[in-house]
């Protein structure tokens, strides 16, 4: 994570990182998780599961902030997040621009 300007409370803020778990055989391929992930972590796979649906796969896990939106939106209870680590924000370099994600 890079900042235009280091936030004043950066010594107190920790950015969580999540690990995403996909229960492939439970998935019915609705793509809610892919569509609404605020960090675009997921993408639909071209593979099929046993039911014949395309499950999602994790494109860039490092970007996951463990917000659990995919977990909560998933109508099949087929995806969930656990906390991998919390990243200290304080000692990040300032790069002079906001990293755009979209």
């Amino acid at each position: 994570m890079k900042f235009w300007r280091t936030p004043l409370d950066s010594d107190r803020v920790k950015v969580p990182h999540g690990r995403i778990h996909i229960i492939v055989e439970r998935c019915k391929g609705c793509a809610y998780c892919v569509e609404f992930c605020p960090r675009d972590v997921l993408e639909m796979s071209t593979e099929y599961n046993q039911k014949g649906y395309h499950p999602p796969y994790v494109k860039v896990e490092d970007d996951c902030v463990n917000c659990r939106l995919c977990e909560l939106l998933c109508p099949e209870f087929a995806i969930f997040c656990t906390l991998k680590e919390e990243e200290e924000v304080g000692n990040k370099e300032e790069v002079g621009h906001v990293e755009s994600r979209s």
Partner: peptide, 29 residues
């Protein structure tokens, strides 16, 4: 949180999952 189990499993009758709702139905949500 467990690495193996979906956190919803504690509240669900897992012996009845998968449920009958269609793909992209919002009921599970």
């Amino acid at each position: 949180p467990s690495e193996e189990h979906h956190p919803m499993e504690a509240l669900l009758r897992m012996d009845r999952i998968p449920h009958i709702w269609c793909s992209t139905c919002g009921l599970g949500t």
